[in-house]
Deep mutational scan, measured.
Amino acid sequence: TIDEIIKALEQAVKDNKPIQVGNYTVTSADEAEKLAKKLKKEY
Rank of each mutant, 00 (worst) to 15 (best):
Q11W: 06
I5K: 01
D30R: 08
I2H: 05
V13P: 02
Q11G: 06
Q11H: 04
E42P: 05
K40H: 09
D30S: 10
I6A: 01
S28F: 03
Q11N: 07
E42D: 09
Y43F: 11
Y43N: 10
E10R: 09
V21P: 01
A36L: 15
T27P: 05
T25R: 09
Y24D: 02
I19H: 02
Y43P: 04
Y24S: 02
D15A: 10
S28Y: 04
E10D: 06
A36D: 00
K40R: 15
V26L: 06
G22I: 04
E31W: 03
D30G: 08
K40Y: 10
E10A: 08
S28K: 00
I19C: 11
E33A: 14
S28R: 01
T27R: 07
L9A: 01
K38H: 09
A29G: 09
D15H: 07
V13K: 06
V26D: 01
Q11A: 09
V13D: 01
Q11C: 04
D15M: 11
A36I: 15
E33S: 10
I5S: 00
E42H: 10
V13Y: 09
L35T: 00
K38G: 03
E42K: 14
A29L: 06
D15F: 13
D15R: 04
L9Q: 01
T27D: 11
K34A: 15
L35S: 00
A12T: 04
T25W: 15
A32T: 00
E4H: 06
Y43V: 07
K17N: 06
K34W: 15
V21N: 02
A29Q: 06
K38P: 01
E4C: 15
I19R: 04
K7G: 05
G22P: 02
N23P: 15
I2N: 03
T25G: 05
V21I: 15
A12D: 00
Y43C: 13
V21C: 13
A32Q: 02
T27A: 12
L39N: 01
I6K: 01
V21T: 03
T25N: 10
D3C: 15
I19G: 04
P18H: 05
K14H: 09
Y43M: 12
T25K: 07
T27F: 14
K37Y: 08
V21S: 01
K38F: 14
L35G: 00
T25V: 13
E4P: 03
E33L: 15
K17H: 08
L9M: 04
Y43S: 08
T1Y: 12
D15C: 12
I2W: 12
D3P: 09
G22S: 04
E4K: 07
